[in-house]
Amino acid sequence: MADTKVFIVDDSAVVRQVLTGLLDSLPGIKVIGAAPDPIFALARMEKDWPDVIILDIEMPRMDGITFLKKLMHEHPTPVVICSTLTARGAEVTMQAMSAGAVDIITKPTVNLKGFLQDSKTLLADAIKGAAHARLKKSSVPTGKPLEGSPKLTADAVLAHTSLITMTETTDRVVAIGTSTGGTQALEYVLTRLPRTTPGIVIVQHMPEAFTAAFAKRLDSLCQITVKEAEQNDRVIPGLALIAPGGKHMLLRRSGAQYRVEIKDGPLVSRHRPSVDVLFRSAAQAAGKNVLGIIMTGMGDDGAHGMKELHDTGALCIAQDEASCVVYGMPKEAVKLGGTDGELPLSGIPNLIIQSPNRAKFLKG
C-alpha cells in the first residue's frame, strides 16, 4: 500500500521542521512538502497533490480558514488543523472544523518537539483517519490506526461487571460517540432537536481546550442547551453534555437522577475521552433506558462498549457507511453484533426525538 502523502502549511519554520521529521519517522506516512502560507502551498501542491494537508490557521497573505473554504470548493482534500492550545486558537479552529476540516492536532507555544513526540500515536491516527475521509460520495477503504503505545480497554477506567437488568422507564438517556467527521455530524444532529429532547451525553474525540469552544459554538446554534460537561452535571431533557477533552466521562445514577462523572485515567482505545468508557458506564447505570448511537470515526473506540450496552436491551444504532466521513467506528460496532441497525445521518435526529425502545424500533 502506498504511503499517505502529507503536505504541511504553517508559517513557523520550527513547526514545519519538527512535524516533517516526526511524520517521516512514522511508517506509512511521507511528507512531500511544506510551505509557510497557502499561496506558496498551492503552487507546490499542483505538481504533486497530497492525500492530507496539515494546516495552520493564522498565517500571512491568506489565513487558514479562507484557504480551507477555497480548497473545499475547488479541490476537496482532507485537512487536519494544526492549532495552538489557546482560547483564541480553539474558537477559530471550530470555525475551521465547520468549514470542512476533519481533525485537529495541537501545538503548544513552548516545548513543541517534546509535546509532539509524546503525541506521536494520536498524530499518526489523525493523519491516517483523515486519509480515509470521504469528502465526496465514493467508496474508500477503512484502515486501522498505526501501532504505537499499548491499546487499553475500558477496564483501565471502569471495571466490567455482570449486566443488571434495568426496569424500563420513560426517563431516557441518549449516549453518542463519534470521532473523525463528528464535529459536522453532531452539528447536523443537534441543531435539529427540540428542547423536549431526552438528555444527551456525548464523547467527541477532541483535544483538551477545544471541547469548551465546540460546545459553545453548538449552544449558539441549537434550540437545546449544549455545554462542556462538569463533575456531577445532571443529565436532563433539553441538555447535551460534551465530555471535556483530556478527561473520561461516565454516566452515573444517583437515586432517580442521572449525573456524569468526569475523571482522569489512561487512554482507552487510544483516546481520552473514550466512547467505550461512556458506553460501558451507560450500560451499568441505565441499561435499556439508553439510546446508544455511534457515528463517523476512525478506529474502533466505542464498538465494545456498544456491544455491552446492546446486551442490556438498549437500542443501539450505527451511522450508515454512505453518510460517514470515515466508516470505522460504526463498522466495528456492527461487526461485533452490538447494533440493532444502521441509519443515515439524516435519520438520526428523528430517531432521538422519537426515542423508541428496542422492541418498537425492530417492529418498525
Rank of each mutant, 00 (worst) to 15 (best):
K5I: 11
A159D: 15
V9I: 15
K107V: 04
K128M: 15
V9S: 04
T296M: 00
A256F: 14
D155R: 11
V277E: 07
L239W: 03
R358T: 03
A285K: 02
T296H: 08
V326I: 11
V174W: 05
G305Y: 02
L351Q: 02
A322N: 09
P50L: 00
V140E: 15
I29E: 02
D11P: 04
T109I: 12
I236H: 08
V334K: 07
L22R: 12
S269F: 02
E261Y: 02
L362D: 05
P356L: 05
V31C: 07
H271T: 01
R270G: 09
V326M: 10
R172Y: 10
R134D: 02
G114A: 09
G341F: 04
I57P: 13
E187A: 11
K363T: 14
I8Q: 11
G337L: 00
C316M: 04
P344S: 11
A215F: 08
A43Q: 15
M45C: 06
E321Y: 00
A35T: 07
L186F: 07
H160M: 15
D56I: 06
G182E: 04
R252I: 14
P244D: 01
P194V: 08
L68V: 14
T161A: 12
M72T: 08
L218S: 01
P150W: 14
H310D: 07
E228H: 02
P78M: 11
E228A: 05
T211G: 08
T142V: 10
K128W: 14
S346M: 11
P198A: 05
N289M: 07
P273N: 01
I224K: 01
Q354D: 13
V157T: 10
H205Q: 01
